[in-house]
Write a protein that binds this DNA or RNA. Structure first.
Lengths: 251, 251
DNA sequence: TTAATTAATTTTGTATACAATATTTTTTAC
DNA sequence: GTAAAAAATATTGTATACAAAATTAATTAA
């Protein structure tokens, strides 16, 4: 944690002040900036700086930061400021588990409420995914991949559930940025396609199974074992006795 | 909607100012006041008045109201102010549907992760419910009944899911206040007891079935058909032609 | 030079002031 | 007396000012 947080750099091309931006617009811009990785996890979000950038006072920036904090994309440390969230491995597991639970239910609901146009929308979404993957545009792929899950959630026609899925997908993006090991496996598009097919076939058990496996695979592609980061440092450098040596100063 | 919103009356015994309250404490007090029906749905939450009551400036009241708004317990109309939410029938259905989806999943997870102490906690929760029901304390019953679902969610050991269930339970309380027809059926405690038994027996399908039926019964006890309130007024008073008459002024 | 302490600066938390919008009351016309 | 228009009032939205806390820089001692 000793690395210094990078300063906020929302848009390099930005003129110092851009007046007239409303609360919601500023939220959208910051939300996009975080998910598109222009603002990396851990970045400090200074109220003054952001106020200058958007040409508004700290008052309105504060409201936006609180909204982002409620959505878990930003973390507020009292008296210290707001930072782009750095989800812990435990939190990452929690988010993926919540997604399996909720999206399994959404798949069931989608099977009941599906319309042909919904399925067409989903197929187009996967097509866009595949294109971004072929072009090697990793950033677009993360966004479009999440988009598929949002479109699927929308079929359930439940604004509350859509809001929850949106939140979970956003958090997943932050998690991927932090913990994805190597390149993403290109089979993800195919998994989405298979889910669509199972929904169309109204095969509930199979569709649920595919969705759970898909999200589990997503989690398995992450590096989530470094909860003991500091302990590892000790085990790497320490003499026999390991982290217990931490307390002993002499020797 | 022509009925005037009642003014805020948080605690009759309250002295005009009570200094030193922190952000989170004010949130807790307002949250409790709304769920305990001391603040009825539709009540206007004036920033000045609340600031006076809690002995803080509008700045901090504003933050609390925004937090409550994000949790859907309060609704903010731009330039008009904050009001205790009055969920529409459509929203009520949405909330109960989301609960069925999420709590069905929670039941499955609880079956996997249950510990003996968890089950004991649940049984105690139901005991408290039954007591409040026997004493005819309806307000306590609403709170304790929601509490059972929260305790159940906690077994899944997932803070995100607990937060979602907490939000949904709160919204359900507001919904019950608005739409519950007659007295609550006293079988609700028994339904909770049955769910506990099914979880202990690790009978996943039965436990899920019971939870879904329980929440469906809860929804069925509500009066949710008055989405056409205004239209009804017209059909009640109007001459043949019904609501189409609305536009015509003469005659 | 390093470590600890102190001072200076920066940044957040809260109150207040003013502008913009709603609401209420009063006035005016029919 | 009722309805519309205008003025007055009250309330929200935003900017700014000041206090409290944290961070950074400077100073001092070992």
């Amino acid at each position: 944690m000793s690395r210094t947080a990078p300063t906020v750099a929302l848009k390099q091309s930005e003129t110092p002040t851009r007046k007239g931006l409303h609360n919601g617009q500023i939220y959208e811009e910051m939300f996009a900036a975080i998910l598109e990785q222009r603002l990396a996890p851990g970045t400090k979000l200074s109220e003054d700086t952001l106020g200058e950038i958007f040409g508004v006072s700290r008052t309105v920036i504060r409201a936006v930061l609180q909204r982002l904090a409620h959505e878990r994309i930003v973390q507020i440390h009292p008296n210290r400021g707001a930072f782009v969230s750095e989800p812990s491995p435990a939190e990452a597991h929690e988010v993926l588990q919540a997604r399996r639970l909720i999206e399994a239910g959404i798949v069931r609901e989608a099977i009941r409420k599906q319309m042909p146009s919904d399925m067409e929308t989903l197929r187009q979404s996967v097509a866009a995914e595949r294109e971004s993957l072929e072009q090697g545009d990793h950033e677009s792929w993360v966004r479009l991949s999440g988009n598929f899950h949002l479109k699927l959630a929308a079929i359930a026609k439940n604004r509350t559930l859509v809001a929850y899925v949106k939140e979970l997908v956003s958090r997943t993006s932050l998690i991927i940025v932090q913990y994805q090991k190597g390149n993403v496996s290109p089979c993800s598009c195919d998994e989405h396609t298979q889910i669509i097919k199972a929904i169309e076939a109204r095969d509930e058990e199979k569709a649920v199974e595919l969705m759970m496996a898909h999200l589990k695979a997503c989690e398995d592609q992450l590096n989530l074992q470094n909860d003991e980061e500091k302990a590892d440092l000790f085990s790497i450098f320490a003499k026999p006795g390991g982290r217990a040596d931490k307390k002993r100063r002499a020797v």
